[in-house]
């Protein structure tokens, strides 16, 4: 099992943040709005494919009634148990390394982190 790249981690986290509506467009909007980076659609799709190959993500097609989608289905993105595990592991590592660095980095921003 490979390690998670930063963007892969962000994508997984964003999918988890969407809770009831984990769809690609929303993930992209979320990343652009809150991760402060420009996300091309192609990069997002490629990352989704890669995460699926690694077994961290699954998706299923879901019919959509939204008229704007012209009858095209939506892709519901589901983080697998392995994916969750990978995220947790990365979080633990990050936390371990962050610990005690407040004097150097300054205190973390609290607002918005519990979304």
């Amino acid at each position: 099992m490979g390690r998670l790249g930063e963007f892969e981690l962000l994508v997984l986290l964003s999918i988890l943040r969407q809770r009831a509506a984990p769809y690609a467009n929303r993930v992209r909007d979320d990343l652009e709005a809150n991760a402060d980076r420009r996300v091309t659609r192609g990069a997002l799709y490629r990352t989704i494919d890669r995460l699926c190959e690694k077994g961290l993500l699954e998706w299923e097609l879901e019919p959509s009634e939204t008229p704007d989608r012209g009858g095209h289905p939506m892709r519901r993105l589901l983080v697998t148990a392995e994916g969750l595990e990978a995220v947790e592991r990365t979080r633990d590592v990050l936390q371990r390394f962050m610990r005690g660095l407040d004097p150097v980095l300054g205190p973390a921003l609290e607002e918005g982190l519990d979304a």
Binding site: Y23, A24, N25, R41, Y45, I48, D49, W59, L61, S64, T66, D68, R69, G70, H72, P73, M74, R75
Partner: peptide, 17 residues
């Protein structure tokens, strides 16, 4: 790609917006 219909849908949705 099996996700093609969903990709087209994503594009169309943003297109209309």
């Amino acid at each position: 790609d099996a996700a093609l219909p969903a990709i087209l849908g994503d594009l169309l949705e943003e297109f209309h917006w």
